[in-house]
Design a protein around this nucleic acid. Sequence first.
DNA 1: CCTCCACCGGAAAGCCGGGTCA
DNA 2: TGACCCGGCTTTCCGGTGGAGG
Length: 439
Amino acid sequence: MEKYNIKYFYKRLYCFHKKRRGAYNKANAYIPPFHLENIMERGLETFFEGFLKKESVFFDKKALQSSYIPETVNHREDQIKQMANILAPVLKGDKPSNLFIYGKTGTGKTLTAKYTTQQLTEIAKRENIPLEILYINCKLKRSTDTEYRLIAQLATELGKSIPPTGLPTEEVYKAFIRALNRQQRNYIIILDEIDQLVSKAGDNVLYNLTRINEDTESQISLLGISNDIMFIDNLDPRVKSSLSEEEIVFPPYNALQIQSILKQRAELAFNKGVLMEGVIEKCAAYAARDHGDARRALELLRVAGEVADRKNLKAIMIDNIDEAEEKIEKDRILDIITTQPKQYHLLLFSILSLKPNRGNALFTGEVYEIYKALCKKTNTTILTQRRVSDIISEFDMLGIINAKVISKGRYGRTRDISVEIPEAMLPRIKKILEESIRI
DNA sequence: CCTCCACCGGAAAGCCGGGTCA
DNA sequence: TGACCCGGCTTTCCGGTGGAGG
């Protein structure tokens, strides 16, 4: 945790407040108000001074966050032009075609879409054209991963609050349409990570959304963003044809392009001269290595800066990037594991405790046996093997284990499970799991 | 070439805790 | 209050299958 973050600041302020009024300490002795001793000014002053003096390599960290929209979007001129062409009719009051955007993660899809629509709204506002953009990120957990919730979310954006559950879905649609009709406008709905939505809620939602124009005076265009290119092929043909009336592909950035993006952002984010030679190049190279993910590059740079700050360095060294990469991966795994429910912990613990004597080739059956024993020992209900099998798949998808289906011939078919957590982290993780299991 | 193991993974249905509404 | 609805998690049921060993 950073020492001088906002929480810390408020804590200090609160302490200060108590001291100003005077307070009783643990031994119930009255400690006189600050100003009587004239320490207060000094205390607070030094705090603020420290806060100001505390040197940071950052000037404005925001510029490195993935949600930041820069003044100009580099290397996406073509896509912006295409998108503008497709969406422009909305300015004349016509309904633009539905648009489908795809490209790998970190290729600037969301950024470009937001940037373009932002410009669009500005012009629309100036010219007094009724236009509204609704942006929904379907990946944000718990808010929009089912049909009900998506529509509810959309309706909420239109200022119609809908209870988070309880109503029939039909009712929610009606409320949404009423909200649309309340003011006749053109709407562009951006559905980010639309593949996530479909995998969880099915393509029914999309079908209904594409058909909703028939029930309302307002016109609605959909703008779907996906990083899974195959996703569109698995859709209902009717949805497919109407959703992808237009398509734009975002190719990955190459190393040079990532470099220039990083430079642009770094200029805003860091103080002058804190970047050592070669830092940006290295970040870019790391990110280009796995398919030109600019978001990753930015994150890497940001964390490298944080590492340098924590070490009280005045500049970001090349080594900090390696440390940053390690830290990101570590935090990711730790975050995944600590947020899992107990059953998952039990299972993971079984896998880990089986690992030392069986090497790196565990089979579902053995894991399940250990898991059952563990459940009995800790007095937990035992899940069926079918369910456990699903949990193993989930771990696989999260990237903390690797589970491949193999055939052992006469000895059946099973999954070959190996652990993907770095060796160095294992003791710590085991400890976390143990604690969670006990309780 | 056939068999048959030990599990995979799809489909459907049940249960539970959260909610609305009249 | 009871009738309903939803989503998440789980169980039940069951057809499917790659390949070692006969």
